[in-house]
Amino acid sequence: MAATDAPPILKLGIDDALAGLVLSTEAQWNQTEDDWRVFLHEGVVFGIRDGARLVATAALLPYSGNNAWISMVLVSGKHRRRGLATRLVDACLQTARQNGLTSWLDATPDGAAVYGPLGFTPTLQLRRLKLVKPARAEAPPTSSATLDALRMRDRRATGFDRTALLSAFAQRYGSRIVAANGAIALVRDGRTARHIGPLFADDAAAALALVDAIVRSETSPLLLDAVASQGAFLDGLTSAGWTVERPFQRMRFGPATVTGEEMPFAVAGPEFG
């Protein structure tokens, strides 16, 4: 196919949330329609259509301090190996450069092999863990945790102001913020599993105790994206029955702009950072 025959890259709108959900569901990802609406409302989502059907996407979600997250890089099965993902990531990077943004992403091992030659620098590593729960639960732990407390801890750890993102999470049906003994986390719905994160704590013991309290009050499968360098936390999770599903490599394109004051124990998800 000649370059002039390549399907155009389009900017998607809020009405494309369901079409995006079809793509992420095909890939067996955990995003919901509400997640897609965050990207479409707060960021820029590029897409490629085959006729009326959306067949590829990539999103750029801006944060504070001239930073942005690249994610939702998806291509429908029959349209892979045509360079669509590369074109869409290039569109994200071009938009980021035009706006003076440093770009971040969390890549699978295969993705990291692609993004490295493009100029992305590896930073920390993540491990996605899953726990399948029986269909019974204790009463949720009492907690006076607030969105403002979570937002402040999130900024201290990431260096980003993510008020819009955390507010969108917290306002959803079924979401809750839980805190105890110097640890705080957000729990929200996903398409197939509930997600714990971000999670911050003074130490691994407090982080594990909070996860245990959350687990005992949940009935659905649970996902958690742990920071790999938090070894005691990871060991405690696997000892409690959590299984590692896959690794992610966090990568940065552009100059470092922020330094967190603490290391999180779990992040909001590879699509959000």
Rank of each mutant, 00 (worst) to 15 (best):
H79M: 12
L60K: 01
D35N: 13
R81P: 00
A228Q: 15
A137G: 06
V22C: 07
T238E: 15
A27H: 07
K130Y: 00
A268K: 01
D35Y: 12
G159P: 10
V187Q: 05
R250D: 08
N181P: 00
N181W: 00
F272K: 05
W69K: 08
T32M: 14
P109M: 05
A207G: 07
I70E: 00
G83F: 08
C92M: 05
A58R: 08
P117D: 06
F46E: 02
L21E: 13
L105G: 05
D202G: 11
N181D: 15
T243D: 07
F248E: 05
I70L: 08
L126W: 06
Y115R: 03
P141W: 02
L84F: 13
V22G: 02
G236V: 09
R162L: 06
A256V: 12
A113M: 08
M152N: 11
R82K: 11
Q249H: 06
Q230L: 01
L18D: 14
T238G: 07
S64L: 10
A201S: 06
K11L: 11
Q249G: 00
L101R: 08
T163M: 03
D50C: 12
T121N: 10
R151W: 02
D189G: 14
D203A: 04
F169H: 14
D34T: 14
R246L: 11
S143I: 07
R246G: 00
E33W: 08
P7L: 14
P141I: 04
S217H: 05
